Structure formats: C-alpha cells, structure tokens
Simulated scan of single mutants.
Amino acid sequence: MTSTWTAAHMPRLDGRSIVVTGGTRGIGLATARAAAASGARVVITGRSDESAADVAATVAADTGAQVVGRGLDLTDRDSILRFADGLDDVDVLLHNAGIIPAAPEYTADGFESGMATNLLGPFLLTNTVLPRVRDRVVVVTSLVHRLGVVDPADLHFARRRWSQKRAYADSKLANAQWALELDRRLREAGSRTAAVLCHPGVAATEITSLTPLQAVNDGVIWAAARVANTAERAADCELYAATMPVPPGAFVGPRGRGIRGAPTLVGRSQAASDLRAAGLLWEAAAAQTRSEFPL
C-alpha cells in the first residue's frame, strides 16, 4: 500500500452515493467536496436543514455533482428517525460528525452529549438504515481513543467524574469498539456490507478549539496548523476508508506516528481490539437507543 495516497488518487465515484454526517465544515466538508468532485452523489448533514442545504448548494455549484443537504441532530431520536426515513439506498454511510463537549450536558434521553453525538446517535442511525447500505459503514474515531475507558454500565458519568478529556476519549474508544462489533456481526450475518474504522490524525480545524478561552484556542489552532494535517489532508483518511478496497474491519489512519500524512492501514490498541468489551458496549448501546442489529 502506497504511503503517498491523496484524494487525487481516488477512483471515479460516478453512480455511487455517500452520506457524510457533519459535512458542513472542517474535515467533513473537505471529504464531501472531494467525493462530489469525483462524481459521487453526496448527502451532507448539518445541524439544520437550512445550513446543510446552503453548504450542499455551494459544493454542487463548485463540483457539478448532485449534492443534497439535510438536517440531522444526532442527540435527538426523532431527528435521526426522520433522516433515516427519507434516506434512499446508499453505498457508503460515513460517520464523520463528532463533538468535543465543552461542558457536561445531557440530552432529553439523559445521555451525556459527547457519547450521544459520537456513539449513540450514529449507532441508532446505522441500525435503522443498514439494510440500505450497499458497500460500507465508515466510523471515524480519534487518536485519543487510546486514552479512553468505556464502562458500559456508566456511559454517561452517573458515578464517575466528568471531564472534557475523559468524555471525548471515552466516546472515541466507544466508536472503535462499536466498529469492531459491527464488523463481527456483519461477517457473521454473511453481509457484503463492511464496517471500516478510521482516524484523521490531528487536524487544524475548529474542533481543535478545546477550551472556553479564545486566546488559548487561538494558540492551540496556531500550533496545530504547524504540526497537523490540513482539513483536506485529514479528509484523505476518510476518503481512503470510504472508497478504496480495504479489508472489512480495517483501521485507516495517517502513516508514521499517526499525527499527519497519507492514509495507510494502522494497528488497533488493545482496548479497541477487545471483542468481549465491544460486545458489552453493543448491548448497552442497543438497550439505550432501543435498536438492534437488523440483519
């Protein structure tokens, strides 16, 4: 596998359809734009129908592709089910949307906002539309998943002390374990749909704004711009995972130390490889979202 791959090496995607959640800015927007430029029909989701439609119209005008924008709130069950109900068959469901929660906030269902957005919303959406996904589900995690600890009995910090770092790392490890169990279930069911995990390394995007202090955020972004991937380079990892012939269950990330660079297959951490833990997480997520594997 080459370590110099970029979106310029991506095959034409004419006739294929890709859903990119969180596609209105940052890495998601770069991913959606590159997929559209290669001929894919792209569905971009954003926080509202209006914002998603505006971005989709711009990408469509720039690329000449069919691009649709739809609102999707991954913390809202009704929003997820409405989005799923209006979704046609797709080739790739790419879970790019994610947050680093600034404070301990909870959804109407009592879910911690980071776990709701990064895991439980995508889990429900995937289970709902999986029979309509022809090729693969791509789950985006982060390098910080290596710092996470997933407790299926306490996903929402009822007994543990919440911190921003812990909440984000835990949700990203949960992403990795979910993708592991999804891949196992797909294989067991004999499905031709694959589950692929990826991480974009460290990217200089707005998600780098980790604190409520703008001066600190400006410093973080300044540093990230000098050592991290651009949004377009980070999007290469998502595009590689979404379009190239990688094995089911593969993990794609930047080469080298994983901070920046061209996409390649990378190894999983021990926690991200734990099938028993992944199964327990699945059971908790299924109970909390009232959804199950549909195949």
Rank of each mutant, 00 (worst) to 15 (best):
T230R: 00
V216Q: 13
P247D: 10
P248I: 00
A242T: 00
V227H: 10
R226H: 13
D218L: 10
A234F: 02
P245F: 07
A224I: 03
V220R: 11
A224H: 10
I221D: 13
N229L: 03
D218W: 12
T243K: 00
T230H: 04
V246I: 01
V246P: 02
V216I: 15
A250S: 14
A235C: 06
G219Y: 09
G219P: 11
P248Q: 01
G249R: 04
D236P: 01
L239V: 08
D236M: 02
A250K: 04
A250M: 09
G219C: 10
P245H: 03
P245C: 04
A223N: 08
R233Y: 00
V227T: 14
E238C: 12
Y240W: 13
P248S: 12
A225Q: 14
A231K: 01
V246Y: 03
W222Y: 14
V220M: 14
M244Y: 03
V220T: 10
G219H: 09
V227R: 10
I221F: 13
C237D: 11
E238H: 14
L239H: 02
A242L: 03
R233E: 15
I221Q: 14
N217D: 15
R233L: 09
N229W: 01
M244F: 06
P247L: 01
E232N: 06
A223G: 13
V220F: 13
A241C: 08
A242V: 01
D218Q: 13
A241G: 05
A231D: 12
R233I: 10
A250L: 06
P245Q: 08
R233D: 12
A241N: 03
A223D: 10
A250T: 06
T230V: 08
A235P: 09
P245D: 12
T230F: 00
I221S: 12
C237A: 12
V246H: 05
A242E: 05
W222H: 15
V227S: 11
A223Y: 12
A250Y: 07
D236G: 05
G219R: 13
N217S: 09
P248V: 04
L239A: 03
R233F: 03
G219E: 08
T243R: 01
I221G: 04
E232P: 05
A250D: 06
E232F: 03
A223C: 11
T230Y: 04
W222R: 15
V220C: 00
V246D: 04
L239D: 06
C237M: 12
W222S: 15
V227M: 14
D236Y: 05
A242G: 08
A241M: 02
A225E: 14
R226E: 09
V227L: 13
N217I: 08
V246S: 02
A225H: 14
R226I: 00
P247N: 02
A250G: 08
P247T: 04
A228T: 04
A225P: 08
E232D: 15
L239T: 07
T230D: 02
P245V: 05
A223F: 12
V216W: 11
E238D: 14
T230E: 06
D218V: 09
R226Y: 08
A242P: 02
N217A: 08
G219V: 11
W222I: 00
E232M: 02
V227D: 09
W222G: 14
G249P: 08
C237N: 15
Y240T: 05
C237K: 05
A223K: 08
A228Y: 05
W222T: 15
A224F: 11
A225C: 09
D218K: 12
N229C: 05
Y240C: 06
V227F: 15
A224D: 11
